[in-house]
Amino acid sequence: MAEETGLFVYGIVPSDVEPTPDAQGVGDPPGEVAAIRHGELAALVSEVGLEEPLGRPADLTAYQELLDGTAAVAPVLPVRFGTVVTGPDAVADLLEAHHDRFAAALDEFEGRAEFVVHGRYEERELVADVLADDPAAADLARQVRGQPEEATRAERIRLGEIISQGVELRREAENRKVLDAVAALVVDSAARAPSSELDAVHLAFLVEADRADDFVDALEKYAEERGGLLRLRLLGPHAPYDFVDAHQLVG
Rank of each mutant, 00 (worst) to 15 (best):
E51T: 13
R145S: 11
E65D: 14
A72M: 11
V201C: 08
D213Y: 07
L179S: 05
E172A: 15
D100I: 00
E108D: 11
P30M: 06
H38N: 03
V26G: 11
V187E: 11
V186H: 10
V201S: 04
E149N: 06
P21N: 06
T70Q: 08
F81T: 04
T20P: 10
T86D: 13
F215N: 08
L54I: 05
G160S: 03
V13S: 09
N175Y: 02
L66C: 02
A200C: 10
E174Q: 13
K177E: 11
E96A: 15
K221G: 13
E155T: 01
E155I: 03
G6D: 11
L67P: 10
V182A: 01
A204M: 07
L185A: 00
A132F: 01
T86C: 00
F102A: 08
P29D: 04
A173G: 05
T152R: 10
E208L: 06
N175V: 11
A212S: 11
G31W: 00
A246G: 13
Q64T: 15
D245A: 15
D133F: 01
V17I: 06
A154W: 04
A209E: 11
S189A: 12
A191T: 10
F215Y: 09
L131D: 02
G119K: 08
L159Q: 03
L131I: 04
E47P: 08
V178N: 00
V26E: 01
A34L: 14
V84R: 10
A74I: 03
L198R: 13
K177P: 00
V182I: 11
E123V: 12
D28H: 14
D245R: 15
I162H: 15
F8T: 06
P148K: 07
V207M: 06
V33F: 08
L106V: 12
G82Q: 01
L67W: 03
G111T: 09
G119P: 06
P78R: 10
D89A: 15
E149A: 13
R80A: 07
Q24R: 15
E32S: 14
V187I: 12
L94C: 10
D180L: 03
E208C: 02
K177S: 15
A2W: 01
E225L: 14
E65W: 08
E123S: 12
G55P: 09
A104L: 08
G31F: 06
K221D: 09
E3G: 14
E208P: 04
D16R: 09
L94A: 10
A190V: 08
V178L: 03
G146Q: 02
L7E: 00
G166I: 06
P30Y: 03
F81L: 06
D107R: 13
A97Y: 01
D242R: 13
L50Y: 03
E208R: 12
G27Y: 01
V186N: 01
E149T: 13
V144S: 02
E32K: 14
A34T: 14
A218S: 07
P14I: 00
R120V: 14
V13L: 05
P57A: 10
H99K: 02
Y121R: 02
V216N: 03
D133I: 04
A138M: 03
D93S: 12
R233Y: 07
A71W: 04
V178C: 08
A137C: 02
S164T: 14
R56M: 09
A193I: 04
A151H: 14
